[in-house]
């Protein structure tokens, strides 16, 4: 079994009001050395043993569903069952 970890984040140009609200809360906790919070999404996707071209499949899934290319970008890591890269 192969685990793929996918990270979807807003492009730099996109406003992130949730990230800003979180940053304000962090400042409220007294952490005044924080300068900027961006919120994103994280997915863990498990492939079966007979999966062949995982990169192509993940790109398709991200382009068509997990990320909206108008406002988001994604990156991913492929990890095997033991957790080693």
């Amino acid at each position: 079994m192969t685990l793929v970890k996918v990270y979807v984040t807003y492009k730099e140009s996109i406003l992130d009001p949730q990230g800003e609200a979180i940053e304000t809360a962090i400042h409220g906790m007294g952490h005044n050395d924080i300068n900027g919070v961006r919120m994103g999404k994280y997915f863990e996707i498990n492939f079966t043993d007979d999966a062949k071209d995982i990169d192509t499949e993940i790109d398709t899934i991200c382009d068509k569903l997990l990320a909206n290319p108008n406002m988001e970008t994604y990156r991913y890591e492929i990890v095997n069952a033991e957790g080693a890269k």
Binding site: I14, L15, D16, P17, Q18, E20, A21, N68, N70, M71
Partner: peptide, 17 residues
Amino acid sequence: LTEIGLLPGALIRNRQN
């Protein structure tokens, strides 16, 4: 309609959250 590509652009969270 923007998600299926029939219209351009996207709708994101209101600026005032």
